[in-house]
Simulated scan of single mutants.
Amino acid sequence: MVDITDNRVTGLAGRYAAALYALAHEQGALDQTVEQIAALGRLIKESKPLAALIANPLTDIAQAGKALDEALAAQGVSTLVRHFVGVVAANRRLRDLPMLIQGFGAYAAAKRGEAVAVVTSAHALSDTQRAQLTARLAEAGHGTVRLIEKLDAGLLGGLRLQIGDKLYDTTLKSRLNRLNYSLKGAA
């Protein structure tokens, strides 16, 4: 899990994100790195075999790192991003790669003055819902907002949104809990 407080990424994800951001900025490849890291995150989400390889604790790190490097090179991914993935693998943090990618996205957004909103929902948001949510947050004075989406089937419906230190909870689960407490109070 990426710890995002007041638009700052902390912990392990923060350290990796700060290092990659500084190196990309120094090399003048910041925009390209942000795009490629985001694409890598989408690839991991969409490819079940790749996600399984990364998540498996029995994966041979040396072979997985080499295979990932070759696959990323074939896709035209920059040397910087390939080295980042290689360092993650060499440090035995391959299982944390999705979290580190998410952390880098949040770190880069914060550095660029974008607000980061963590949206947790029971079902994946559609493009229309995403656009509406971003527009409503912009109207509320948050300016440019970068959404980090999480799924939690236990919420039943609705969504939970955290932006900065504010939490908005419109989930069905929280509504049912409030109703339960009010009924207990009436008895």
Rank of each mutant, 00 (worst) to 15 (best):
A73F: 04
V2A: 06
G14S: 05
I61H: 13
L68Y: 06
D127C: 06
A138W: 09
L23C: 04
D6G: 12
L151T: 04
G41N: 07
Y21Q: 10
G14W: 07
L147V: 00
A71M: 14
F84S: 04
V118N: 00
A135Y: 08
D6V: 05
L159P: 00
Q32F: 02
T120K: 11
R146W: 08
T120D: 09
D169F: 12
R93C: 03
D96M: 11
M1V: 00
L137Q: 02
T59G: 03
D169N: 10
V87N: 02
L155G: 01
R175H: 15
V145S: 03
L97V: 06
Q102P: 01
T59R: 10
G28Y: 07
K166S: 08
A115S: 15
A24Q: 04
K66A: 15
V81W: 12
R42K: 12
L53F: 12
G65Q: 09
T33R: 01
L58I: 08
L172E: 04
K150A: 12
R175F: 12
L30D: 07
L125S: 09
D169I: 02
A62P: 01
A187F: 14
S182I: 03
G86I: 08
D127H: 08
G143E: 10
Q63S: 13
Y21V: 06
Q102G: 08
R178C: 01
G41K: 04
P98T: 00
L68W: 10
G86D: 08
L159Y: 14
A67W: 09
N91E: 11
A124K: 13
Y168G: 02
G76H: 10
K150H: 12
Q75P: 00
Q63G: 01
L161D: 06
A138H: 11
I61N: 15
A71L: 15
N180D: 15
Y21P: 08
D3S: 03
S47H: 03
H123Y: 11
D127I: 07
I148F: 01
G105Y: 05
Q102H: 07
T144L: 11
L151W: 01
